[in-house]
Design a protein around this nucleic acid. Structure first.
Lengths: 246, 246
DNA sequence: CCCCCGCCTGTGAATTCTCTGAGAAACCCA
DNA sequence: TGGGTTTCTCAGAGAATTCACAGGCGGGGG
């Protein structure tokens, strides 16, 4: 089931109307804090654990609808944690966090079961999107909720990553896609460059804030090119997207 | 929930009808005083603390709906304070105060959880507006409260920063927008130039008082242009805005 | 009725913000 | 390993915004 808040954002809910529950497992406090903050903001209920033992314990009583699991934990191997979690909650989808250079083949095998993974350092947009996908597909949330964002004649499919305006397919790079997704999930709302940076770029990004301007520029070329513009600048405040008409 | 006071101002209230509670944390007394005064004027209940330890302590018993937190505290790092606050009050939104040049510093990720920040020196309008936004979105206040101010046929949307009169969109600059917002939040009430200056301009503004006249003039051109005027001068007292049809 | 003070507004300059081209570095896939 | 793609830095151009200054206007007290 989905519901629309007054701000116009759509939230995932469980069939019984209660908030989705997510368990976050990572030994770095800064990561669990960051994720907890961001996921709570999605309207989800969050519990966190710092090691495998704690994870299994918490899972038993919290009964989460999804788990975010760092593969690198102090007390036991990620696979072992996964095994015990599965004994506890056979059907819960898991989003793995892995180091960039980690053995991807092992992960690949694991995600065959409908799970998914992101590499550190990740962007929050990425984590939230993957998690939404997992929860949606697991059936914990109402299945009718779909994965297509629409603003005016612009559509973005979060599953297939297809974007089109007025029927014309548009090719976007990964970063462009995430930026557009963030804008489209907050239509008609001014988003500051800081907000965009925090959400779309990795948490360890230390570069110039003008990458946001740059990517807005890229998006405009692809999306607004020769059409009625949908992406608008609010000088001194940020950017927003809205349907072309009105 | 929102309610309208006898003076015609709309106030944010918690679902149970009690006033919103805000904790202000800053080591400079002049800042906490300034903020406390301004926020009390909004009808909110304010408590303040001068350091991290005091902040956590006060938060524990005061249970604020929002926190204003200076990132630069004598006893501990802003992030450390944040962590402890979060342990105490997982869902409370935080408005960070940061020095202008320290923005890049370690603000990264902070706005991701729905939090927000303003740079010093700030204007009170800015702080109040951001705080209202945070509280509104956090759900501490009734969700029916929305982000659109209306006076006569003039509307101002705080989310999209859009302004229109009788359906015609009007483009305002950042300062014009803040001034109009202040006027519209106090319809039919005379606001002195001093009040406006204190509220809309940064607290360290050292310029000529006639910027207010100047910006009123700008607003009139854009809003009253060729229409029944809504912005009125009370010679010797100040300005006020009210619906055109008296 | 006149003058003073407060208010209005045109001009222009300094500043800040945004956009975008060019190119280097990292990345990806074969 | 090699070429195409993507990400990001740097820097200059250009535009928008802010603000000071100063002359003009006009309301209303005397």
């Amino acid at each position: 089931m989905t519901t629309t808040s007054p701000q116009g954002r759509t939230e995932l809910l469980r069939p019984d109307g209660s908030p989705v529950r997510v368990l976050v497992v990572d030994d770095e406090l800064s990561i669990t804090e960051l994720l907890s903050m961001a996921l709570r903001y999605e309207g989800w209920q969050i519990r966190s654990a710092a090691d495998g033992t704690g994870a299994v314990q918490t899972a038993r009583e919290f009964r989460p609808d999804a788990v975010v699991l760092d593969m690198m934990l102090p007390d036991m191997d990620g696979l072992a944690v996964l095994g015990r979690l599965r004994r506890e909650l056979p059907d819960v989808p898991v989003l793995f966090l892995t180091a960039k250079d980690a053995v991807e083949d092992r992960i690949a095998g694991l995600t065959a079961g409908g799970d998914d993974y992101v590499t550190k350092p990740f962007s929050l947009e990425e984590v939230v999107a993957r998690l939404r996908g997992l929860i949606r597909r697991s059936g914990a949330a109402d299945r009718r909720s779909d994965s297509v964002l629409v603003v005016g004649d612009l559509t973005l499919d979060e599953d297939s990553h297809e974007v089109s305006r007025a029927g014309d397919g548009i090719h976007l790079t990964a970063t462009e896609f995430e930026l557009l997704r963030f804008l489209m999930r907050n239509p008609r709302r001014v988003l500051s460059k800081a907000q965009i940076l925090d959400r779309v770029w990795s948490y360890d990004f230390g570069g110039q804030a003008n990458v946001v301007e740059l990517y807005i520029s890229y998006l405009r070329r692809k999306i607004d090119a020769g059409r009625e513009p949908m992406i608008h600048t609010r000088r001194g405040a940020g950017y927003l997207i809205k349907p072309a008409v009105s």
